[in-house]
Structures are given as C-alpha cells and as structure tokens.
C-alpha cells in the first residue's frame, strides 16, 4: 500500500468516527443528562414517593408476566420457524414483524377493539369475571403485543444457531422430539433464549403508547412520568423518568454480562 492509500484510508476512518460520535452523542446525551439531573432525586424519592414505588413494582411484574407469556408461546413458534419448512412460513415471519412496525397507540387501539368490554373476547372475559381493560391484565396484553415479536425473532435465531444434527443424533439415541428438544436444544440455546427474554422484558418495561390506551390506571412508570409531566410539570416528571431509565439499565447490563460470558466460553 502506498503512502497516499494509507492517508486516504485514515481519512475515511476519521470521517466515520466523527459521524459516529455525533450520533452517539445525540443518543447518549439525553439519557446521561436525565440520569445526571434527576437520578439522585429519583433514587431518593423511592423512599418517600409511594406512587413511584408502586409504579416501578407494577412495571417490573407486568413486564415479567408479559415476557413469560411471550416465552410460553414464543419458544415453540421459534422452534417451528427455525427447524421446519412449511407453507406460509415466510408470510408468518413477516406477520411477526407487524407489531414492531405499527405505531404503538394504534396497537393499543387495535387491542382495545379486541379486548374491550363490547368485543367478543373482552365480553366473554368480563362474563367470566375477568376485566382486562383498565387493569394490570391490559398492561400485560399491551406489553406482550409489542414485545413478543422481539422474543420470537431472537429465540428463532438462538435455536437456529444450534445445529439440527444434534437433535437428529439424540433422536437416533432414543429421544422423542420433545425429549430431544428439552435435553439438547434447550440447554444449548439457553443463553440465547435468556438474552431474548431480557430484550423482551426491556422492551415491555419501556412501552407507553399501547399501555396508555388500555390501562391508564394503575400506572406503570412510563405512564406515571407522562402523567406527572402533564399535571405537575418537568420538575416532578424528572425523577420518575430517571428512575425508569435506571430500571431499563438493569436488563441492558445483564445482557452485556451474558454476551461477555458467551465470548469467554467460546
């Protein structure tokens, strides 16, 4: 490589780093600012602000329930998508991306249409004594709707990474399909499935648009921060928003640790 080529390639690197830094700054600055300004007060409020405490707990519990629902249906679906060739597989995969693409209030309205008291499903649930809209069930439904596709797509990748021939060998060694999945694929894809669950949980925690349509009260943290902003102004919203940002950092940190562990094993 001659001197000019070297200097050109260095120029390209510098330009790329500059452009990248600007974007990173734009992404990181608000979050850092938020946690920096409101973080300490947010943590301090945890002791005194019962509404914030309850909202955090509700958010974490509902996100966990939504993630469990996503995993329950998502793991079998991911296995089918990863392992079986069937008519309409491509269409199904495309449909799974749909919830990621429609605006979240629209998703909330669609869910309201399905689960509201005047709908068939919502009506039947209500007749069985189960209110969905305006309860934590509505929160879970909204969270699951927007976050489950993430789980399925990440889980599909995790399962596809485990060579199907491991399952094949297990079958020739006497395992039924379910047993082979449980003894071989599940443990081998375990780390990937856990990562999928973490991403799903994080996405559920950060949801606002769909939840606010279905269940305004009881409030999850995102709704609470919006509520405080509109009724009390920025100073009241800030600690709540910061607490939510800190909560979102938990799965992010776990995910990083998981990936680092995977690197070390490999």
């Amino acid at each position: 490589m001659d001197a000019r080529a070297v200097s050109t390639s260095r120029l390209v690197s510098i330009a790329a780093a500059l452009a990248g830094s600007l974007l990173l700054l734009f992404l990181a600055a608000p979050v850092i600012g938020l946690v920096g300004v409101g973080g300490a007060e947010g943590l301090a409020r945890l002791g005194s602000d019962a509404e914030l405490r309850d909202a955090l707990l509700l958010t974490a519990l509902c996100a966990t329930a939504a993630t469990a629902c996503a995993a329950l249906g998502g793991v079998p679906l991911a296995w089918l998508l990863a392992r079986r060739d069937f008519p309409g597989r491509a269409v199904l995969a495309a449909c799974l991306d749909l919830p990621l693409l429609i605006p979240h209030p629209v998703a909330g309205i669609a869910l309201l249409l399905l689960l509201g008291r005047d709908s068939a499903v919502g009506g039947a649930a209500l007749a069985a004594g189960l209110r969905i809209v305006g309860t934590p069930l509505g929160i879970i439904a909204a969270m699951a709707f927007v976050a489950a596709p993430l789980f399925v797509s990440a889980a599909r990748e995790a399962i596809a990474r485990v060579d199907a021939r491991y399952e094949g060998v297990a079958r020739t060694l006497g395992d039924t399909p379910w047993r082979a999945f449980r003894r071989i694929t599940l443990p081998l894809a375990g780390r990937g499935l856990l990562a999928a669950a973490l991403v799903t949980w994080a996405r559920a925690v950060s949801e606002f648009g769909a939840i606010v349509v279905l269940t305004y009260n009881p409030k999850v943290v995102s709704v609470l921060s919006y509520d405080r902003l509109t009724s009390h102004g920025l100073s009241e919203a800030l600690p709540v928003a910061a607490a939510l940002a800190v909560l979102a950092l938990v799965p992010l940190t776990l995910l990083r640790a998981l990936r680092a562990d995977a690197e070390r094993v490999r």
């Binding site: 021939r165 491991y166 094949g168 079958r171 020739t172 060694l173 039924t176 399909p177 443990p187 081998l188």
Partner: peptide, 30 residues
C-alpha cells in the same frame, strides 16, 4: 416410524457430541 423407534445408530463425520454433557454422559445418553 420415528427415528427413536428404528433401532438405527448414526455417527456423523463431525461427531456432534453434546457439548453441554461430559464424555461419560454422552456415551451413556441412549
């Protein structure tokens, strides 16, 4: 007839030992 009922042993070129099990558990698997 599913693979588990055929009484057929298969050894792949790349072995495909179950990486999360010990050698002992691999041999004893089935």
């Amino acid at each position: 007839v599913p693979p588990e009922a055929r009484g057929v042993g298969l050894v792949y070129q790349h072995a495909f030992l179950f990486p999360h099990l010990s050698v002992q558990d691999n041999v004893a698997y089935g």
